[in-house]
């Protein structure tokens, strides 16, 4: 009788864990954007930054961060809880009109439920457009996306995983970057 009771509790626990796991994975999977192929940009860019760090590579990178180095320590604090960091950045020698289809494909993914636009900046003076999106799930940020376009630079950043905005905030201040008012939702068109 006691054994049956234990078995029932065990089954309930397994079912609860099984029900919980796909939710977490789904949240992580949603935060991971399908970045399009930017081959056309690569051939025209003077500088290309293409970084894809999945969970495994982030783990390897973490092991090589120097705890005595301030930047490394700050980076370690920021990436704890992350499962992926993806960056595509292209710099051009002259003003360049980017193909909007690829960017629109990324924007479309950010229309999915959960993604919230945190900042939308359109600067006519500097011709800079920056959109910052957060994937929020139960009041927790599980993903970050930045789409920034300037006349000579185009950048997409996708950070996957549990993002501690406080740590990001601290990173901005610590590394000589003025603190961004993340608490305030900016929406300028």
């Amino acid at each position: 009788m006691k054994t049956n009771w234990h078995r029932t509790i065990g089954l309930i626990l397994i079912a609860a864990i099984a029900a919980f796991l796909p939710t977490n994975n789904a949240a992580a999977a949603d935060a991971l954007l399908r970045l399009p192929n930017f081959d056309a940009l690569e051939s025209k860019a003077s500088k290309v930054v293409s970084i894809s760090l999945d969970e495994k590579l982030l783990g390897i990178a973490t092991r090589f961060l120097d705890p005595k180095n301030a930047d490394d320590s700050a980076a370690r604090a920021v990436i704890s809880g992350l499962t992926g960091v993806y960056v595509r950045s292209y710099t051009f020698d002259e003003d360049f009109a980017y193909p909007t289809t690829a960017v629109d494909a990324v924007r479309k993914q950010l229309n999915a439920p959960g993604w919230q636009r945190l900042v939308e900046v359109r600067s006519r003076k500097e011709h800079a457009n920056v959109d910052i999106f957060l994937l929020v799930d139960r009041d927790k940020a599980n993903g970050l996306a930045i789409i920034a376009s300037e006349p000579r630079e185009f950048t997409i950043v996708n950070i996957v995983g549990s993002i501690d905005l406080e740590k990001l905030h601290r990173l901005e201040g610590q590394m000589g970057i003025p603190k961004l008012q993340l608490e305030q939702k900016e929406s300028r068109k």
């Binding site: 760090l53 982030l58 300037e150 970057i177």
Partner: peptide, 16 residues
């Protein structure tokens, strides 16, 4: 990783 964080910071700074 440091390069990715640098680019991220740069873009956050640009927005700021």
């Amino acid at each position: 990783l440091l390069e990715a964080l640098r680019v991220t910071r740069e873009k956050l700074d640009l927005a700021y």
